[in-house]
């Protein structure tokens, strides 16, 4: 299965993006759009500690304590 989909955007916007990416390092308007969307979607703060269960977080803090990183 193809893991990409086609999304339509206004032609004028597309033309503006093409202008914008000239000499910018982006290969295509698609690359730019994907990059911007990824950035927008990741704007939520990366609260990595919430990726742990309470038990894991406790164990990790204990590890940091044992190693002298935390009091």
């Amino acid at each position: 299965m193809n893991d990409k989909v086609t999304i339509k955007i206004p032609r004028r916007l597309y033309a503006k993006i093409q202008q914008l990416i000239t000499d910018s390092g982006f290969n295509s308007a698609t690359d730019f759009i994907v990059y911007v969307l990824r950035d927008v979607l990741s704007e939520k703060p990366d609260d990595s500690s919430s990726e742990f269960s309470a038990e894991e977080l406790k164990a990790l803090k204990q590890k940091l304590r044992n190693l002298g990183y935390l009091d």
Binding site: D46, S48, S49, E51, F52, L60, K61, K63, Y69
Partner: peptide, 13 residues
């Protein structure tokens, strides 16, 4: 410390 551990450490500090 791996990246997650560092992130938890910084937060705890």
């Amino acid at each position: 410390l791996d990246p997650k551990e560092c992130r938890v450490l910084f937060k705890a500090k």
